[in-house]
Design a protein around this nucleic acid. Structure first.
Length: 254
DNA sequence: ATGGTAGACAATCTA
């Protein structure tokens, strides 16, 4: 079973890339973030033509998440407890063949001290509370753009990044609260020390210079994590014409 | 405190 997460930064712009990538990798389940379209504008027909089911939780201009799956998904949730009605679309929970997948696009946080930063920490807190409706002894995945680099080895220059948004202590603490609920970070389980990144700023030639952060994650409860055989970042998707600023993360389970 | 780029959308906002 192959699971992937990818912040595509606009499904419209990334569709040709996504279709070609789906054909080559054929993941069983794909969590997408920042689709930036309302549900009716999601390119469902093109993706279904490749044999995928589409669940979407979209909005105009910003955010929006989707889950693609080879098998039939059941939509379990589209918002967190405490979200305003018609709020930002950052969560989608699906059950596919008895496996539950939580797809998240955590708020970026803008900068420390801002209202967006407080909103991010509050969102994390509500996500942690939401987990109490699940069981860490069962097979559960949470995938997406967490907008947090958990450790120094997840940042190209931890000295420069210390205290900055994406790498501040309160954000790392909030992420750790998810882990301590009962998840394993699948990439770190298989690659404990390697410098591996998933996001590079579009500006200043960051990708070419290796200025990346690992902020996209696939977390699994122990029964599932124990069956994880391979996790990698598909850096090829950060190259070439019109890349997203994020590369996909792929995990393979036995 | 700013710049650098990308996307949505039409003057900024978000990242």
């Amino acid at each position: 079973m192959k699971i992937a997460t990818w912040n595509v930064n606009s499904i419209r712009v990334r569709l040709p890339r996504l279709l070609s990538w789906l054909e080559r990798h054929r993941p069983d389940i794909v969590c997408l973030q920042e689709i930036k379209v309302v549900d009716k504008d999601f390119p469902k027909a093109e993706i279904e033509a490749l044999g995928y089911n589409c669940l979407t939780n979209g909005q105009k201009t910003y955010n929006g998440v989707a889950i693609l799956s080879l098998h039939q998904p059941i939509n379990m949730a589209t918002s967190l407890p405490g979200d305003p009605t018609e709020g930002e679309k950052r969560l989608l929970v699906a059950t596919i063949d008895d496996l539950t997948v939580i797809n998240v696009y955590v708020p970026n946080g803008s900068e420390l001290g801002s209202s967006k930063y407080e909103y991010k920490l509050n969102w994390y807190s509500r996500l942690r509370t939401f987990l109490d409706s699940f069981d860490p002894a069962k097979e559960l995945l949470i995938c997406g753009d967490f907008n947090v680099a958990p450790h120094e080895r997840d940042v190209w220059n931890p000295v420069q990044w210390e205290g900055q948004v994406l790498f501040s202590q309160p954000e790392k603490d909030a992420f750790e609260q998810l882990i301590s609920w009962g998840f394993e970070d699948t990439l770190r389980k298989l690659h404990p020390e390697e410098k591996i990144y998933t996001w590079w700023d579009y500006r200043a030639g960051a990708f070419h210079r290796g200025w990346g952060l690992r902020i996209d994650h696939i977390l699994a409860t122990p029964p599932l994590a124990n069956r994880c055989r391979e996790v990698y970042v598909d850096r090829e998707e950060r190259k070439g014409e019109k890349p997203s600023d994020h590369a996909p993360v792929i995990a393979v389970f036995e």
